[in-house]
Design a binder for these strands. Sequence first.
DNA 1: ACTTGTGAAACTTTTCACAGCG
DNA 2: CGCTGTGAAAAGTTTCACAAGT
Lengths: 235, 235
Amino acid sequence: MTDAPAARRGIPGATVARLPVYLRALAGLAATGVDTVSSEELAEAAGVRSAKLRKDLSYLGSYGVRGVGYDVVRLREEIARELGLQYDWSVAIIGMGNLGHALAAYSGFATRGFRVTWLVDEDPNLVGSRIAGLTVIDMDALATQPPAGLIGVIATPPTAAQSVADRLVEMGVHSILNFAPCVLAVPDGVEVRKVDLATELQILAFHEQHARAELGPLADLAAVEVADARQEATS
Amino acid sequence: MTDAPAARRGIPGATVARLPVYLRALAGLAATGVDTVSSEELAEAAGVRSAKLRKDLSYLGSYGVRGVGYDVVRLREEIARELGLQYDWSVAIIGMGNLGHALAAYSGFATRGFRVTWLVDEDPNLVGSRIAGLTVIDMDALATQPPAGLIGVIATPPTAAQSVADRLVEMGVHSILNFAPCVLAVPDGVEVRKVDLATELQILAFHEQHARAELGPLADLAAVEVADARQEATS
DNA sequence: ACTTGTGAAACTTTTCACAGCG
DNA sequence: CGCTGTGAAAAGTTTCACAAGT
């Protein structure tokens, strides 16, 4: 019954997270005029192994042709549909600091199915000003016209992030992208993804340190040793 | 032999990725004067389950006290050491567009063990200008003084990203944070982490669409349907 | 002949549940 | 008694290898 041409509820999360990468790779291939691609080639373009790619695509259904490969246009459509990109989703960016500014101006959203529709800040000096073609409003103004399916992007300082999240949830938002370096508490049914820049660097630092340890003592480290008030910790 | 007070090579990747979150939670607790914390409390602050937290910490060694909990200062030091944060790592940001600018000005790096030391761009109009207290240089200038342990942050357009990565690798960098929406090919031993903003939104769109499907047909969708040249696909 | 789609195996990560220790 | 640390079970993810289809 529910066995129509797509996967029955339950595409693994790891697969969902890779679909955007495949989509990007397919867009690149389409742009260069390729119209059929093998799992081997597409996997190469996406930076994964071909078996993984095939397994991932198998969750969406059978869109390949054995002995031939995948039709670039068709596969692109199927993935886009699975991701819900037949709609142009509205995005509200909250917090117009450096990062909020950069996000508002980022052209990569528009080209990939998203429309930045609201820019929000609480600072009265910013409210009313124009950034990237939009007028900055405050949270109250946003709350008067919250569209269903809005995605909220939090780019405030961490101290403000939780209360912004609360207000977004209150107005019916259930997808949030959080750039503030803090944990957000939200009710069930609200999906939060986080991007923490310092965290990413710390993970790299771990690998850097351990790669280094293979090669011998950390003698030639140009990274500056922290030699400051660390005494208070040891005394 | 190699059984000193830390984990023997092989902390799971999933655990490493969470250590920065624990570190942040501990910093928060330390700031409010708490000096002992149970796995339950710390897990709550970090947004994970306590069993997972304890398992993660067990890879670092036994730093808790049964019946009591963990010493906040001690645990913080141990995690920081494991992540290699006893050093201040140098960071070079390549690509001084909107995002590069925002990253250069981001104060969150300095407070978490990283020092943005070089800003790089190829545009002659930018080279020599000052951003966030630093003078913008070009890749050639960076190549003349590449410190060991440098972390490269790529914030260029995707078309330039691969060649920037190649040059970074050439000068001995083996940790790269890539903001450009493309796959980078690098040799073994070079660690690349990527942050793709549109990808994150697409993953949210997937969940948004499927959460919505639970509640019935997509009637009240305020996300604008893409009603353009999609006919060519159906005809 | 060639490439997909997929069971089964291998590996990783999370969760459970309780022994062990302060 | 309470909380950590950890084996063992469960769940999730990746890889293998080949049968099945064109």
